[in-house]
Computed example of a mutant assay.
Amino acid sequence: MRSCLIAASTLALAFGSSAAHALTDAEFQAIATKVFIPVMKEYRIPGVAVGLTLDGHEYYFTHGEAVRATHQPVAKDTIFELGSVSKLFNVTLAELAEQRGLLSMSDSVSAHIPALRGTAFDGITLLNLATHTTAGLPLQAPESVTDAGDELTDYLRAFKAQGDPSTFRSYSNVSIGLLGKITAEKFKKPYGQVLETQVFRRLGLSSTYVSVPDAAAGRYAYGYSKKDDRPVRLNPGVLDAEAYGVKSTVVDMTRFLGANLGAVQAPKEIADALAGTHVGFFETRYYTQDLIWEQYPWPVDAHRLQAGNSSDMALKTQPVKRLSPPAAPASEAVFLNKTGSTNGFGSYVALLPSEKLGIVVLANRNYPNEVRVQATQHLIKMLEEISRK
């Protein structure tokens, strides 16, 4: 698939003009078909759901099968696993907790977990947990850690910092999972329950869950393994709910992006929490690290965007520079994105605030991040072309 580079000035002129062509649903269906059907065929993706929020209007494209065995089609209410896109809800909850005075992102981890006092976590803050700057915490907890209680605490007590946490980034489900665990404890309820009551329902996300209830089980798609094509779903793991355990629909995720853009009305404290996740704290080689969101200047070079979403950024240690003061709030001329994967699912979300544009792509196969980025950029380019008609 060909990478697409879009001139921001042209895009802003076309989308921002009062004379710009209004996108119709038929046009969206046509361009989404042109962009995503070839991707589905090349990567053997059973089903895809794509959502677009543009200047407050929502559009949806669905294609393929949610369950191969029964040929159940993907629909707007099909539930997909989000993988690491789940982390965006985690930091939203943490921002909400900070607003209520339950914690401060500048607090040390050990201030909230007394068992970790006198360890490396005296020098690692909640902000570090939210930005993967944790002095070397790994992607996953070792297999010997089977619960988020004493075994996890013992592992963390023995953890040795590999340097100044504010000088390098190591992508970690452990770090963000720990933030979710701490935050939920401040609300005095289990993480999934807190997320549902404090974030999902208050944003009007009626089909977004940590644990899919029996009443919605028939809408929960199966993912399909890259290795042997068998149907799979998320395996339980330590801190899985906090790090990669949310499931949702294309409608709910499009609404979530709309709330991030201010196009969907939300309670003020939730809107403020969402805005807080767009603040930049560390500069990496390719992007500014916000609270989980990855922020690029717009227009962004296609190769830079691909490199920022490469496996190296997730699997290898990367140097960072702390921004002082933080880059807050995010300027309009930025592009924010986040990928997510489980064994059987692949997701991607992107925001272009200057155009009030958000895109979510959900699929029931884990396919390369670079392909998700290319397809989404291709979609944006075609939207820009249509707007100039």
Rank of each mutant, 00 (worst) to 15 (best):
T254A: 00
L257K: 03
K356P: 06
A350G: 08
A19W: 12
G136C: 07
T254K: 01
F61H: 06
V174M: 11
P138R: 14
T288Y: 08
Q306R: 15
T62V: 02
L336R: 12
R117M: 11
V250K: 02
P326N: 10
A333F: 09
Q29L: 12
V91D: 08
A314D: 12
L205P: 06
R372W: 03
L291F: 12
F159Q: 13
V349K: 00
A66P: 00
Y367I: 09
T376N: 05
S108F: 09
E58I: 03
G16L: 11
R255I: 01
S9Q: 14
P267H: 03
V334N: 05
E294Q: 15
T167D: 11
L383H: 02
G123P: 02
Q193P: 02
P325F: 08
Y220D: 05
L351P: 00
E143H: 11
A375Q: 00
A363K: 01
P299T: 13
V210G: 05
P297F: 07
I359R: 01
G218C: 06
A8E: 15
D228G: 02
L126A: 13
T125N: 11
K381V: 06
F80D: 02
Y286E: 11
L82F: 03
S331Q: 13
Q318E: 10
H303E: 10
Y209S: 05
T153P: 01
A215P: 02
T254R: 07
P329N: 08
S248G: 05
A307F: 15
G192L: 06
L205C: 04
Y296C: 10
T146W: 00
P299K: 15
E27A: 02
P297T: 11
T167G: 09
A330C: 13
A19I: 14
D214H: 14
H278D: 07
D25R: 14
H57A: 14
S110V: 07
P114S: 13
V210H: 04
L5S: 10
F168E: 12
E27W: 04
L82W: 03
N260L: 07
G64P: 03
G346A: 01
P190L: 15
S341H: 11
F282C: 07
E81C: 01
A111T: 11
K160T: 15
H21Y: 06
S341N: 15
S9G: 12
A271S: 15
D164C: 09
K247I: 05
K76P: 03
